[in-house]
Amino acid sequence: MTAAIVADDVSRTYQLDGVSVPALRGVSLTVDPGDYVAIVGTSGSGKSTLMHLLGGLDRPTGGTLLIGGRDVSTLSPDEMAALRNTTIGFVFQSFHLLARTTAQDNVGLPLVYRGVGRRERRERAATMLERVGLAHRITHRPNQMSGGEQQRVAIARALVTGPSVLLADEPTGNLDSATGQSVLALLESLVDDGVAVVLVTHDRDVAARARRQIVMKDGLISETR
């Protein structure tokens, strides 16, 4: 079984006005299929930077990072885009749904960049919305849905391409605790299906539900539980 993501001594340094600011200073970590990992840490600890790297949104300035078995340093921007499309699903704290666009078309968006036709996109999106319990919300727009429903739409969008890793950045941060619990339950059900779920959170209770916790501090992994 090949690992979904392998990070080996990965670092990321930003150049701000000519000054080098290290955000990650050598992080090694493996995410296997069906893994359930929480990355925790205070703001500025490097956990967001790590998530961007794991999701192929950014490239490391040092070390080796394999996503889906491919070394990201060898990939062109277009190949990175394709890698994100096929391998990674993102869930954000603020949902990032397109306003004025129905739940169905929001969920189908990643398939647009795969050249899937409109009818098939809508079919697959409908199936996915059904899976997250929103079959009755297919034609609703984000502003017609509750926060919990919007996050479920976002999860459906992340899953529609059949990714091997789902990266969730504070997925319950904008939700009340009951709604947050049900969203977490939905994410955990994916783990059973073999999807690796990586949660980034500063909420200890949320992190405690994961199988592994990685605590970030000053750009390094300070503790693994």
């Binding site: 949104l57 994100r84 960049y113 969008r157 391409t161």
Partner: peptide, 13 residues
């Protein structure tokens, strides 16, 4: 734009 890129849009898209 950020979201579209995250879900796989290439710069040229």
């Amino acid at each position: 734009i950020g979201l579209r890129k995250a879900v796989g849009a290439r710069p040229r898209d």
